[in-house]
Every structure is written in C-alpha cells, then in structure tokens.
Write a protein that binds this DNA or RNA. Structure first.
Length: 474
RNA sequence: CGGGAAGUAGCACAGCUUGGUAGUGCACUAGUUUUGGGAACUAGGGGUCGCAGGUUCAAAUCCUGUCUUCCCGACCA
C-alpha cells in the first residue's frame, strides 16, 4: 500500500524517487534536457535552506555579492587544472545578439575565476583582508546523464569565496565551513553524514585539498552534499591576486571556496521519504503543521482559527486547509507533500473535547484534548519527529556501513548491498582505479584521525596509509 | 556518449499493424447534495497527436531527421 501515484520504494528505487518528486510537486521537466522548473513546493524548501544557511554565513562574517553568469574564455583558461577538470562540461555562448563575439563566453560552471579577476584590483594591503564573500546563484554544467535535483545541467547553489593573508587563516576557514555543512545536515536536515578529505584523484580541480560532506541514501548509494576547498595560492598566482603584507613585501593571497546545492533536496527525499510521498524533517519543512477542519461546523472553524493564531504567534509555520476537498483527500495531500504534523478537527471528536493529531514520519494518529496547550504540544511533537527522523536515518546508515579487509570483501559487499565501506588504503591511485572496477565504487573521503582497522591496503596488501570510506555515488 | 524503451488534453493511456470526422479514465469549470483516509450526480471546457521535412487526393497512423523523458553503462555537485 502507498500513494497510488508512487512506485514502491523497495520495488524500484529510481522510479520511486522520480515519482515522489512529481507527486509532491517539487519540480517538473522543461524543454531543455537537464534543466528543471523548480515548482513552489520545491522552491520553498530551497528558500528555507537558504534562510538558515545565509543566517549562519552572515553570523560568521560573510557578505553576499552577485557575479556575472558569463566568463570570457581567456579568463577561464588562466588556471590550467580548473580548465582541465571542467572542460567537458562547460557550456559556451557563441553568438551574441547583434554582433559576433570576439571570444566565446562560458556560462559559469563555478566562479573562482570571476572572484579572482575581481579581487586582484581590489586588494592592495593586508588591511584589505580577509574578503569573505558568498553568492547565491545558478551555474551550468553540461552533464550527460541528468536526474531531477541530483544531477541537473543547471542548478542553484551558494558558493563562498574567501581570500586571506595567511595560510593558517584560510585553512581555518575551510574547516569552519565544512563544520557548518556538517551541522546543517545533522541538525537541520536530520541526515547523519560523514565528513573527511577527498583523495588527490577525487578532489576539486585546482584545489590543494577538498573537504567533503557525504550522505548515504536509503538504497546505500552515497551523495556528495557540500564541499569546502583550500586553494593555497594556486589561483592567486594564476590570476595575480597579491597584497602587501606586514613586512611590506608582495605576497599572494590564500584562498578558499565552499558550496552546497539544490542537490540537498534530492538527498532529503532519498534519506527520509517513503511510499506515501515526501517526508520532511520539521526544521526544514516550509509548512510544519496543517490544520484540517472536518465538516461544516462553526465550533470546528473557530477552534481551527484559534490554533492557527496561537501556533503562528509561536513561530510555527502552519495553515488551515479550507479547500472544499474531502477530508480523505486533504489527509493524502498533506501526506504526499510531507507536512510533518497534521491536526484534524471535527465535530465528532469535539463532542468529547478531543482532536486527532497525525505525525507524518510514522503515520501515527494521536488523540489529545481540544483545549490542550496546543503550542507546547506541537513544539514537543515537532522536536520528537526531528530527533526520531535523525535516529532512524542513523540506524539505516549504520546498518549500511561495512568494513572490508581485502578485495573479496569489497566485491561481496558491493554485489549484495552497497553502502559506506570502511577500508585501509596505501595511497596509490592505481588501487583506487582497481577498486573502481567493482561497480564504479570510489573513495568517498579519507577519515581524519580514523582508527587503523588494518595494517594493509585493502587492494594491494602493501602498508596502509589512510582509513578511507568507499562507496557507489550518485 | 553507447545500449534499450517511450512521446496523442494537466496526468495515465487507447487509436497506428491495414492512412479517411481525435477518443477513454482521472484532473479542470458550473450547479446541487456531501464531508473522520483520495465523495456523488447533472451539464460543460480543453488537443496544429514532441518538432521539422518527405510520400500521398488525404498522415496521429508510412519514411527520414531531430529534440525530450525514463531505465542500464562510461563522465560528473
């Protein structure tokens, strides 16, 4: 049983995902491959993500700016590694409106180059540093295979770009922003992600190192969900971003960038949702409570309005479903849309001074007194749902977390049930390539200060250097 | 970018083999009765059949190309 428009999750996970996206009206396809129309329900989640993250960024001293969508070819090509890394997926604009362009323009795949080009003329002294900039924008990467939210050719994100006077300060920024992403996933999205360092092979093109936040979906496939890069002086040298330090000497700046995208919406679905549709953790749900009046009754309407006023004043996002649909329709709709708490008010219950409250995550129906302290009741319930959702996701993640000591272990696990696989690694890229031959399994991240679960590399058997988490990714 | 499937009303599909007035269900609109898990009746509205060529007196139907979507692989936030 489940929503009639949704394929069962355990039957066909990919189709289930697409069905939930459509049934909850999060986004629709457009006439351009891989470009989506984010519908009100989906955009409201993105707005909530922006609201929470933006507040956090600003508390940490960042300011927002807006850069152009276009990057001239020459500018993009100044940093060799970045160009190489992104070349296959850059979209080029080759025709202007009236006259031929002198050179091609790239639609930004990421904006390091634009920020550098700007910074170089606006920095002269260590007193001008740091610059802690962020922008909320769209970028384009011409992907071959596309999937709503998880991989689209155009996606929305925030990209933070900072420059600092010292290596130490820039590295601290890189760590700090990864911690923000970790906090956001655990505390707000109720997703028990893991964080660590990307291997040389998997790091961002042009970075000295990349920190990553990795989430595990219900089906055991990993999703990179937030990265923070330390660039050192690589871009600064390519783009000539210099400042006069305290010793009155020219020095290149130390740079970072960090980003999270609309992909997180896909992650939310794939971690928490079920056969009845979307399930949202209360802290990220645009609407936390829906009040559904049953029957045409003056007392019922009055109580609904009273609840709404009280809850709204307490800062809880709620609304009354006053449409003339049947109660059953409203229940099902609230469910497919993932509203965490549903309050059902009807004359039958009210005669006994009762109301019914349903929680979306477990689909449990609870009964309480109509004259209960509704604000406290709902607040406690929302907190409980948030915590329970995290606990269930963590339980699932732990169930899908394995340990491998040799290639046979790896193969057995990946052929049975993919997940996070902990294994030791010698540090040789050849071993990464060998492991990738097993169902495309890649290193997710190196666990910093990870315990040594073996002395030998899982692949070649030589001395192990790092504790790495491996997995199949979206 | 390779392999497979599919595009006909907002959605799900029939019609195509054998060319000849574009259909069904849900959704939508109006009215009435309803309302505790996707209400009922009555009356309505909506489609250059993905797009572009071609064959033909005539194309949703046959041919060619192209775009898009889904699934499976290679590349990626």
């Amino acid at each position: 049983m489940g929503n009639k428009a949704i394929t069962e999750r355990d039957k066909d996970f990919a189709q289930w995902y697409t069905d939930v996206v459509r049934a909850a009206k999060l986004c629709d396809y457009s006439s351009v491959k891989g470009c989506m129309v984010i519908e009100p329900n989906g955009y409201a989640i993105w707005e909530k993500m922006q609201e929470i993250l933006d507040k956090k960024f600003k508390e940490l001293g960042h300011v927002n700016v807006a850069m152009p969508v276009f990057i001239p070819e020459n500018l993009l090509k100044k940093e060799g590694e970045l160009v190489q890394g992104f070349a296959p997926e850059v979209a080029w604009v080759t025709q202007g409106g009236s006259k031929d362009l002198e050179e091609r323009l790239a639609f930004r795949p990421t904006s390091e180059t634009l920020f550098c080009d700007y910074y170089k003329d606006h920095i002269s002294s260590y007193r001008d540093l740091p610059k802690l900039y962020n922008q909320w924008c769209n970028v384009v990467r011409w992907e071959k295979e596309t999937r709503p939210f998880l991989r689209s050719r155009e996606f929305w994100w925030q990209e933070g770009h900072t420059i600092h006077a010292t290596e130490e300060e820039a590295k601290k920024e890189t760590d700090q922003m990864m911690e923000v992403y970790r906090w956001f996933h655990h505390e707000i999205l109720a997703i028990p992600s893991v964080t660590g360092v990307k291997t040389e092979k998997e790091k961002f093109a042009g970075a000295e190192y990349t920190l990553t936040n990795e989430a595990l979906m219900y089906n055991g496939v990993a999703l990179q969900s937030g990265t923070s890069h330390y660039f050192g002086q690589k871009f600064a040298k390519a783009y000539d971003v210099k400042f006069l330090n305290k010793d009155n000497k020219q020095e290149y700046v130390y740079q970072t960038s960090w980003g999270t995208t609309t992909r997180m919406i896909g992650g939310l679905i794939m971690v928490h949702s079920d056969d009845y549709g979307l399930v949202l953790p209360p802290r990220i749900a645009p609407k936390q409570v829906v009040i559904i009046p049953i029957g045409d009754d003056e007392k019922v309407d009055k109580l609904c309005n009273e609840y709404k006023d009280k809850l709204s004043r307490a800062g809880i996002d709620c609304y009354i479903d006053n449409t003339d649909k049947s109660p059953g329709f409203k229940f099902a709709e609230a469910e497919v849309n993932g509203i965490p708490v549903r309050i059902e008010v009807g004359a039958r219950d009210l005669a006994e001074n009762k109301i019914t409250v349903a929680r979306r995550d477990t689909r449990e129906k609870l009964t309480t007194e109509a004259d209960t302290d509704i604000v406290t009741y709902v607040k406690v319930l929302l907190d409980t749902i948030q915590r329970d959702m995290y606990d269930r996701a963590k339980e699932r993640r732990d169930k899908l977390t394995f340990e491998a000591h040799n290639l046979e272990d790896m193969e057995r696990i990946l052929n049975t049930q993919p997940g996070f696989i902990h294994a030791m690694w010698c540090g040789d890229e050849a071993c990464e390539n060998r492991i990738k031959e097993i169902k495309g399994c890649k290193s997710r991240c190196i666990v910093e200060d990870g315990e040594r679960i073996d002395d030998k590399c899982v692949c070649c058997g030589k001395e192990a250097k790092h504790h790495v988490i491996w997995g199949i990714q979206y």
